[in-house]
Design a protein around this nucleic acid. Sequence first.
DNA 1: CCTGGTCTAAAGGTCTGACCCAATTTACCA
DNA 2: TGGTAAATTGGGTCAGACCTTTAGACCAGG
Lengths: 252, 252
Amino acid sequence: MAAGDARSAIRLSPMEVPKASDVLANELRERILSGEYPEGTPLPPERELVTQTRMSRTTVREALRILEVQGLIRIKAGRAGGAFVQRPGEESVASSLELLIRGRQIRLASVHETREAIEPSCARLAAQHRTAGDLRRLEAANEEIAASADLDGFLRANVDWHVAVATASHNEILTGIMMALSRAIYTTTHNEGFVNDEVRDITVRAHRSVTRAIKERDADAAVRRMTRHVHSYAAAALEVDERTTVSVPEED
Amino acid sequence: MAAGDARSAIRLSPMEVPKASDVLANELRERILSGEYPEGTPLPPERELVTQTRMSRTTVREALRILEVQGLIRIKAGRAGGAFVQRPGEESVASSLELLIRGRQIRLASVHETREAIEPSCARLAAQHRTAGDLRRLEAANEEIAASADLDGFLRANVDWHVAVATASHNEILTGIMMALSRAIYTTTHNEGFVNDEVRDITVRAHRSVTRAIKERDADAAVRRMTRHVHSYAAAALEVDERTTVSVPEED
DNA sequence: CCTGGTCTAAAGGTCTGACCCAATTTACCA
DNA sequence: TGGTAAATTGGGTCAGACCTTTAGACCAGG
């Protein structure tokens, strides 16, 4: 009865009727992703697309807006402006992760868990693949973190260093994720003033030691030290958090 | 002269003029993310927004389109339709990661590296936080993987199991990432026909043993086994890949 | 009673055509 | 020749109309 009380045996699944703008957006997206157009290739002007597709300008514009939000094109105004093909970068991943974290009011614990999963691997890959330039950036971030006077400067430099490690891994996916996590942690940690001189000192030392391991291409040490650093940071942040907010009970 | 030949001493820095649709989109986004509106809350109808904001309908619609692409609202047509608040879910992260992977023609190695970073942690957290329902899903996926006859069924069931592990971790970020990676791996592995009976058998056994560890809440064992499983899978896939495509030279 | 047809109101989807603003070229004049 | 003004090209916005989809109500007929 539950699914059989129809007089006919014919079954159909729910069907979707795509919107015109989606159709166009999908078409363009596929072409862009296929690599058919190199980065920077200009799409035809809107009015040209109108005549080619026989859609209205509104529709065309909505399609372009979709692709723009997805980071697949960049739109400039003015003469010689228009829509230009752009390969999606870490930015888009970072921003969507940011939406997830902010919108879902994700437990801070989740963010730290993810970080503990990601960062040691970043450190390992960085130790394996780092270039001289990567090293320069890491050390520059280290300088800055030691030199930073105020809280905000410290946090910012801290983020920079962690992102630099991810960048040195030469893995775009991990880099994108780290950028997003860093931003999230940056904004949350900002309010809780748990950064005192001691924390700062410990952080600087930890960063130095990880950097050294990366420099010496000692993957195992990099993983070990990064794991410890991230873990202790997470523990400290969580402790502060628990003192501040109500902890979410774990279902079971 | 360079910066002082003005008759007035008033200096202004270059300013950006945001687009109207962006302004509206940002305003609505902030409100949604702040949690002010619970999920499912209907936004005012487009025409209503037009009168409230004194913008044109085109502008309003572009703003809504932006939010829709970002996964913050869902738009239904027809009477009682409209825009409804929606908290961004794993899918949006997954799809943006997918764009990154496809668009950048990311090295398959990067995807596997990320997986090797993520999945062991998923397994650990799953072992710690799993519920009875999670376990059911895991075992169901196991059944299906053993029962699957054709290649496609196998791959699909395989993905299901890995996603189920991520879900059992009760960490939305990791889950989102895993969904994206799985999809990417699914599509790439699809073509290379490296899945033979032996691979299949090994996979099933590995999954069973990880599932068991999760069931028994043995976090360490879960991590260990998952690490080995993912690593060997990655190695095998990479080997096939190297036989098929040209490997990218590593810069230094 | 069900079943299907019809109607209506609400809301998004699409189209048209016009106008505005920004960035470049181009052409012209001092 | 060099600077400035006009023309051109392109996106951004607006106003208004019409189409399509959906929910709900109401009706008619077997």
